[in-house]
Design a protein around this nucleic acid. Structure first.
Lengths: 261, 261
DNA sequence: TACCGGTTGTGACTGTTATCACAACCAGAC
DNA sequence: GTCTGGTTGTGATAACAGTCACAACCGGTA
């Protein structure tokens, strides 16, 4: 919530030309060069042809971030894009009264601040790291020039933006068309349970990495309501908690809740 | 709500090479060629350099639509993009129980079905014309090829998508961070009143082109609530109705409502 | 004129959820 | 062990808004 200086924690690590992995200030290896990045192929944006990637290499700043760093705040003029290489980032919007809505938890491979950087309008949300990670920053002018010169990158950007739009539409559906908080929570749990290859399992399990407060902010309800809803789900044997992992015992019942309220 | 055959009403008008404007089946002049379109300069997407425009010309189908035509339905595989030249289009999402949420009323110059066409994922919303209009359709394969060949068009697409994302974020904010239906209605009225150069006026006026039912669908509430809210606003002298035009008599009060609830 | 479908206005009732207040709990620091 | 801050659990209360039901209205048409 408290914005830092410029959202830029420069990584003062050793000479980049030496090797691909260098030790960063926050105790994690940082990926110094995109050209040799092992994860590149899996990522929508990063999988560019070599010439584009080389050009990107010259304009990006590889930086390491601590937990809780604010990359940008909603309403700020766009400074540039943030390519999330490692770690997770919380994307939220926030009302004048302090009420916050978490839109999504961005994972590695996503590009943040893209639409604002392209359109020139202010960032429409706030991005805050929730664990230490690495982020490649590119200044707006550099990025726009890069896009004009590399049409394949430009197409990737369109793809990323489509993805984001898709996401936002889902959020709108969930917020606007649900009849109750229970319905929204069920939807969220099902969405979470469909990750990490748990989708097919009859009784998927998932890590509850967020507090009730944060879950409440994701579905636009109050903390107490979330607590009560969880209590109810447990009483009805639909879910079962084991420490911070949640076991979904009755997927069908959860699905019924998600679509009826 | 009832999907038509393919969302394509071919315009059987006279020879396109003859002139720019030809008479369409629905009694409106259609803009046959983008190259000579007078509105081109004002529109985000259409203002392309001549070579790109010429290429676009060869792949687009200029078609006239009646009122109430369904261009595409949420969940359908993307057939292509729809460039809205004239008329308005209602964009909505719809729950299994029939409850509908209107996301926005698209105006001339917007490109519809863009993100689905780019990403290949199903259309995320339903598009339905609300008055007769003209739409240029481009098939998905043609459009993707066009984008690869014309990087300036690709950049325009990124801009359009950014715009759409921005819009969706506003929708999320309004839906997720409002405390009451009154707050959402006030926000909507202020947004409407800031169009058509009425923004600066102390007592802006706006055309109420939608029914209470539709307004309810825009802010995710019930028809009766909208009726009651309007009655309340009138009683408190904040707005005043004159036929189908609404005069905002107390903008400050409306703003207060919009931000506090 | 009377009729009609769609829209708007209004009352009564009910369920959901926000809010406040406080107790219980848990993990880490000391 | 004790303290402490953050999290979770739970009750009481009030307000908001959805729903049903029906009356009133309005514009077009036969």
């Amino acid at each position: 919530m408290t914005p830092d200086t410029h959202g830029l924690f420069m990584c003062p690590g050793p000479d980049a030309s030496q090797g691909v992995y260098v030790l960063s200030p926050y105790g994690l290896d940082i990926i110094e060069s995109c050209l040799t990045c092992k994860m590149r192929a899996d990522r929508i944006f990063c999988d560019l042809p070599t010439p584009a990637l080389q050009a990107f290499e010259t304009i990006k700043y590889a930086t390491a971030y601590p937990k809780g760093a604010v990359l940008f705040v909603e309403g700020q003029a766009p400074r540039g894009i943030f390519v999330l290489c490692k770690g997770r980032v919380k994307l939220s919007i926030c009302a004048t009264d302090g009420k916050t809505l978490i839109l999504k938890i961005a994972e590695a491979g996503e590009v943040l601040g893209l639409s604002a950087t392209v359109s020139g309008k202010p960032y429409e949300l706030t991005a805050e790291t929730i664990d230490p990670g690495q982020i490649n920053f590119v200044k707006r002018e550099d990025f726009l020039r890069f896009l004009k010169e590399h049409s394949d990158a430009c197409f990737k950007v369109a793809e990323q933006l489509s993805d984001k739009y898709n996401n936002a539409c889902h959020e709108v559906r969930s917020l606007g068309l649900s009849h109750s908080a229970g319905e929204k929570l069920a939807k969220l749990l099902l969405e979470w349970s469909s990750k990490n290859g748990e989708a097919a399992k009859a009784e998927p399990r998932l890590k509850l990495a967020l507090t009730h407060e944060e879950i409440a902010q994701m579905i636009g309800t109050s903390r107490e309501t979330v607590t009560r809803l969880f209590a109810d789900l447990k009483k009805r044997q639909i879910v079962q908690a084991k420490g911070s992992t949640l076991l979904i015992r009755n997927k069908a019942a959860l699905k019924a809740l998600a679509s009826s309220g």
